[in-house]
Amino acid sequence: MTDPGHTATETESPRDQRKGRGLPHSIYALGGGLLLFALVMLVRDDILLRSGPPTPAAQDNGAIAFTPPPMSSIPNGPAGASIRHGMAIFENTGTEARAFVGNGLACRSCHLDAGRKADSAPMWAAWVSYPQYRAKNKKMNSMEDRLNGCFSYSMNGQDSPSGGPPPKGDPIYTDLEAYFHWLASNAPTGAKLKGAGFPKLKLSSLGYDRDRGRAVYAQHCASCHGDDGQGRRDLNGRQVFPPLWGANSYNWGAGMAQINNAAGFIKANMPLGAGNSLTDQQAWDAAAWIDSQERPKDPRQKGSVQDNAAAFHEGEKTFYGKTIDNHLLGTGTSPKPRL
C-alpha cells in the first residue's frame, strides 16, 4: 500500500496534505449528489407514478360540505325499489309521471346530475330543510307540498293529461321522497349545507338587461338550447337540452321564472361543464333574456295578468306582466299537442 521508496509522505506539511484534496471532495460530492438524485427518482417513480391526478380540494366557508352516497349503495328490497323508482321519476319524469307533466322537462333538467349536483338546488340539501314556511303560498310546507308546487309550475301540470299535479298521497311523492331521503343519508338536519339551492348573485348597478342578454344567449347558450330556446332533441325525439321558454318549458309560476333564481343557476352551472365561466353580469343578462320570453301561463291566474302579477309576483325580479315588443308577457302559450 505505502510505497517504501516513496518518502514524500513523511515530509509533507499539513498544508500540503490538504492540497489536491479539493477535487476528490468535489468528485465525491458529485457522486453523492448523483446518488441522492437516483434515490429521489426511485421515490418519484414509486410514489408519484402511483398516485392519480390531484382532485380539487374542497373549500370550506362555514357551511358544511356534503357528499351524497354513490348510486351503488342503494339498498335492495322494497325500500331500494322505492328509492330506485323515485330516481326514475326524477330522471324520466315525463314517462314515470306522465299524467302530471305538461312540458318537455324533467326534475333533473334543473336539478342537475339527478339532483346530486351542488349549487343546482340539490335534493340532499332540500330534504333536510323541509318542512319549511314558504312565502309563496304563505304556509308551512311539507316536502309533498313542495313537490306539488314543482309539478304545478316547473312541470306545468296544468297542460298534463290529468290537468294538474299528482293528487295528495300519490305514490309518486312517496318514491321521490324516498330517493331524496336516501340522497341525504347522514346529512345533518336543518344545518346549512354547502351548495344548497342556487347561488345568490348580487345585482350590480347595471341591473339586468334583455338586450345585453340576447347577445350573451347567442354566444353562450344558443348552440345547445337553440336560437329559439326550444332546446334540442336527439334523433329519437328525446329532449336532451331542455326548452327554456315556450309551451314546452316551465310556466310563469315556476321559481326559474324569476330572474334572480335563473341567474344563480346559470352562473353556477351553465354552460354545462363550464359552470362559473360566465360573469355575474352575463348570468343576470342571459336570465333576463330567457325570462322575457312567453311561456305557459301562471296556473294561479284567475283574472287578468295584471291582477295576477299584483297577487303573486309582487317584488319578484321577473318580466311577468310587462309588455315587450307589444306583447304582454304572462298571457301564456297555447298548449302544444303532446307527442
Binding site: 323508482h85 326514475a88 324520466n92 315525463g94 314517462t95 329519437n236 328525446r238 329532449q239 303532446r338 307527442l339
Partner: peptide, 16 residues
C-alpha cells in the same frame, strides 16, 4: 340508458 332500468322507456321517444 334508453329503455330505462325499469324498462319504462321514454314517453314519446323510446318504446317501453
Amino acid at each position: 340508458t334508453c329503455h330505462q332500468a325499469n324498462g319504462a322507456g321514454v314517453a314519446g321517444a323510446v318504446p317501453p
